[in-house]
């Protein structure tokens, strides 16, 4: 039978509001921080532009061969995602933080990634404790004797474990991507057997996301100037639909022009490669050490716990 602990009803809002409040406070702090430190507001750094200051060799992760880095981090991410207990998941977060520290990546960008995760994970933290089915041995908190609204501690643990795993993997994305220019990373992927066209498509669409974002912002400010304000009504939906339609018309036309211009400049389906790849002993050493760490986490998760 499950352990049932009774609480008066008034403590229930407290229990829900406290973590929600904590998350909200964290999100607000992160936003503040991100805004203060962010380069010009609203301008994402465009990684498709090759960086001029060649910072190869800056840290251990910068010097790591791109191919070894991609394979290692992918395998390791899957290992982390398949963990089932809280302690190894928290260890994975610590390991990711170490990798971040070694790679000396921008803290702001990492925080932005966590911010994007906070919505889904916050919902998980609130919903799972109330919806997880009751098992024998579970600790259940009841508020004011309402039977259908029981707070299951096992659900909370499950949600926290998932959050830890998601954070551990999200923290690794910056060390993976920011330690080499994007074209080099994509070339590395192509060397690993991904069709070359995929890398080109990623580069192209990444570049044009920025262009179309700019366009969308201009259209939005045009609408605001003419007095449009978003409300919950049919007219807003009509206006948003017109906005979408216009965005599609303009972008499809632009696409044709872009492609013509590319062909006029001699595009034959390939971009020139940047940099060269050399797989050395230390690349493999680092890769094996990292994958071993992932294996150790799984072993700890499945055998010891």
């Amino acid at each position: 039978m499950a352990d049932i602990i009774q609480y008066p009803l008034w403590q229930l809002p407290l229990l829900i509001l406290m973590p929600l409040g904590c998350i909200a406070a964290m999100v607000i702090c992160l936003r503040r921080l991100a805004h203060r430190k962010e380069i010009p507001r609203g301008e994402d750094p465009d990684w498709s532009v090759p960086s001029l200051d060649d910072d190869t060799g800056a840290t251990l992760l910068h010097r790591w061969d791109v191919r070894a880095k991609i394979v290692t981090l992918l395998v390791y991410s899957f290992a982390v995602a398949s963990l089932e207990h809280l302690t190894p998941s928290l260890l994975a977060v610590v390991l990711s933080l170490t990798a971040m520290a070694i790679a000396r990546v921008s803290v702001v960008r990492v925080l932005l990634r966590l911010l994007a995760l906070s919505g889904f994970l916050g919902m998980l933290l609130v919903v799972l404790p109330f919806t997880v089915p009751m098992h024998s041995g579970d600790t259940v908190l009841l508020f004011g004797g309402i039977q259908w609204l029981s707070f299951n501690v096992r659900g909370l643990l499950l949600a926290v474990t998932i959050a830890a795993k998601a954070v551990a993997i999200a923290l690794l994305m910056e060390p993976l991507l920011a330690t080499a220019p994007l074209p080099v990373t994509l070339n590395g992927l192509a060397r690993l057997g991904l069709p070359e066209m995929v890398g080109q498509m990623v580069l192209l669409s990444y570049r044009y996301v920025h262009v179309f974002l700019h366009e969308a912002r201009r259209m939005a400010s045009g609408m605001r100037v003419r007095g449009f304000r978003k409300r919950t009504d049919l007219y807003t939906l009509y206006a948003v639909a017109g906005f979408l339609g216009m965005l599609f018309v303009r972008s499809f036309e632009r696409t044709e022009r872009v492609f013509d211009a590319m062909r006029a400049r001699g595009y034959t389906g390939r971009f020139p490669e940047q940099g060269e790849f050399r797989l050395q002993g230390r690349d493999i050493l680092l890769a094996s050490a990292w994958i071993l760490a992932g294996g150790a986490l799984i072993a700890y998760d499945r055998i010891i716990l």
Binding site: V202, S205, Y206, E215, F248, V258, M262
Partner: peptide
């Protein structure tokens, strides 16, 4: 395919 990539950017923004 390159055109599809550019169009993808528009859907992404949408």
């Amino acid at each position: 395919l390159p055109k599809l990539a550019v169009v993808t950017a528009a859907f992404f923004v949408a």
